[in-house]
């Protein structure tokens, strides 16, 4: 797909001096690795406060937000923290009830057709990247397991304040929206339907407005100064 993409073609030519079939997975790996090196961050206000024991590194609101993060917000179970480091992701896949409503009503037909075309040798990558309905199948499109229906990978939260918009389809614009979405158990509005395949880690949290604001303050404390400067 990279070889045929009009956006990638000139960029690969410029950086690696290759085009067409000469573009290999090695080039793609190098490009991704170069990108990942820009993400390394470990000196955010949170790191200095939690691991560096600098009590002034985080605001009072962020410190209250950390308690919400660890307890009532249930955030830590997927966006994990360890005793001596924090990756803020468990690398698992979950259906959060984002964007799935688009296909929920006709799922049996959609999956039957998808499986049929997959068996006939159809390209899954092309299918999920070019068809908005099929893209909502998430991890299921790859492993054919019902448990992965509509599931997308947990991202890290480092520098999250600088990476709007949010969720796998960019449908939420601000961290405030995201926190409100989780507090409602995976809903933008109180009465939105919840699909049958939603992850069992998601449920309504009943966070107050203040708790939600504190949680956002905590998430803003995950930005590393180096990353902030580079943007």
């Amino acid at each position: 797909m990279v070889r045929d993409d009009p956006d990638y073609q000139p960029r690969f030519k410029e950086v690696f001096g290759v085009s067409g079939d000469a573009i290999t997975i090695e080039h793609v790996k190098q490009a991704i690795a170069a990108f990942e090196r820009t993400l390394i961050s470990g000196d955010s206000p949170f790191d200095r406060w939690y691991f560096g024991r600098d009590r002034k590194a985080m605001s009072e609101a962020a410190i209250r937000g950390f308690k919400v993060y660890m307890e009532q917000g249930r955030c830590v179970s997927c966006h994990t923290i360890a005793e001596d480091h924090a990756l803020f992701t468990d690398n698992r896949f979950n259906n959060l009830n984002v964007g799935f409503e688009r296909i929920a009503g006709r799922l049996p037909k959609l999956t039957a057709a998808f499986e049929k075309s997959k068996r006939a040798g159809g390209n899954v990558d092309v299918a999920v990247l070019s068809n908005a309905n099929l893209s909502e199948l998430g991890r299921y499109a790859v492993n054919d397991q019902w448990r992965s229906m509509g599931a997308f990978k947990t991202p890290t939260l480092r520098n999250v304040a600088r990476t709007a918009p949010y969720m796998h389809d960019g449908s939420l614009k601000t961290l405030k929206d995201v926190v409100s979405f989780y507090s409602k158990g995976g809903r933008v509005k109180d009465k939105d339907p919840i699909n049958a395949y939603q992850s069992s880690g998601i449920r309504p949290l009943g966070l107050s407005d203040k708790q939600q604001a504190d949680l956002v303050a905590f998430l803003e404390a995950l930005t590393s100064p180096a990353y902030a400067k580079s943007k």
């Binding site: 994990t80 923290i81 005793e83």
Partner: peptide, 20 residues
């Protein structure tokens, strides 16, 4: 180490997790 709490915990903390 209790994954749900993000750190090493004693039992009453996990009991509270279950109550919550």
């Amino acid at each position: 180490f209790q994954k749900q709490l993000g750190r090493v915990a004693v039992m009453w903390e996990m009991i509270n997790w279950c109550i919550r």
